[in-house]
Simulated scan of single mutants.
Amino acid sequence: MKLIVYLFLILFSGFTFAIEAPIKWIRSPVLSLSESVAGHKIKKFEVQAAFTANEKGEIVNAKIIKSSGRRQVDTYILAGLYLEKLQIYYENGKPTPFYAIQAFEINNKYANDKTYYLCRFETKSKNYESQQQYTDSTEALKELDYVYLNAPVSKREFELSKYVDENLGEFEIEFYSQDGKISNVRGINSKDYFWLYAGEAVEYAKTIQPKKANWSKNRHKFTDTITLSRKCNSKPI
């Protein structure tokens, strides 16, 4: 198996590439790093990854041999490698598997000296909290138009914030259901993009039980009020 060592220099500003290699990527193997992945403390990530490519140019094995200093960035680098392909390498006219070491330098455009906290979103559903006051769904449906069969909660990944805790407001959410399945979730008269996060909680619940049987058989519209807040770790990162 051929050993190929080469440099692949990547700059965030415009994604400029400098390549010195007898082989080439069909597309860039680096995913765009978000602020939560890149963080703010490291100005430049220097990473080295070793990988094996098969005779089709597909990455079949990869590992980080020099860490960026941030686990999330290392994970994204590996994910990018597995997603992309190389141009096929030929040895004596025959497609040949090879082993390579790839070096990356990535300028972090998010780097600064400000204080940030690791945070998560929390949601409270008015309808779900109401149904919790009853002994069972039969009792709840005497008063409510529907009950959730799963709790509507946010599963959004952690994000970075400059604030310790923050109440993001109440959002009126509209959705449709047929055969109990939630669909077409949207915010009502909301100009703030946070309604999307509130709506995600309703989507996660997946199913409801409506009050009337014909509401289940036919597509029917329902509403809920979701309170969204950001809860953060007490210590900055």
Rank of each mutant, 00 (worst) to 15 (best):
K191D: 15
V5H: 13
S67E: 04
P152L: 04
I88D: 07
A213I: 15
E172R: 04
W195V: 03
T115L: 11
I182Q: 00
K155M: 13
A151S: 14
L7Q: 15
I4R: 00
S161F: 01
K206N: 12
F8E: 05
P236D: 08
E122P: 01
E174W: 03
F45H: 02
T223N: 14
E143F: 14
Q132P: 01
E172S: 07
E139Q: 13
G93K: 10
L9D: 15
L3W: 05
S137W: 08
V5T: 15
E129R: 07
F51Q: 01
K41F: 06
I88A: 06
S229D: 07
E139K: 12
Q133V: 10
L3Y: 09
R71L: 13
S130T: 09
A21M: 10
G93T: 10
K126A: 15
E55Y: 08
I182S: 00
P236T: 05
K235D: 14
V30W: 00
E203Y: 11
I77T: 03
N92Q: 14
N61K: 14
I4C: 02
K2Y: 11
A49N: 03
T135L: 12
E143D: 14
K126P: 04
D192Y: 07
D165G: 07
S229G: 06
R120W: 04
Y6W: 11
D165Y: 14
Y116V: 04
P152E: 01
T138S: 12
K235G: 02
G169R: 03
Y99F: 15
N108V: 05
V60F: 09
G93E: 08
Y99T: 15
F104Y: 07
Q48W: 07
E174C: 06
Y90R: 12
Y99S: 13
N218C: 08
S154G: 06
K142G: 08
L31A: 09
D74Y: 05
Y193V: 12
A18V: 11
N184L: 11
K66H: 12
R186T: 07
A38L: 03
S229C: 05
D224H: 02
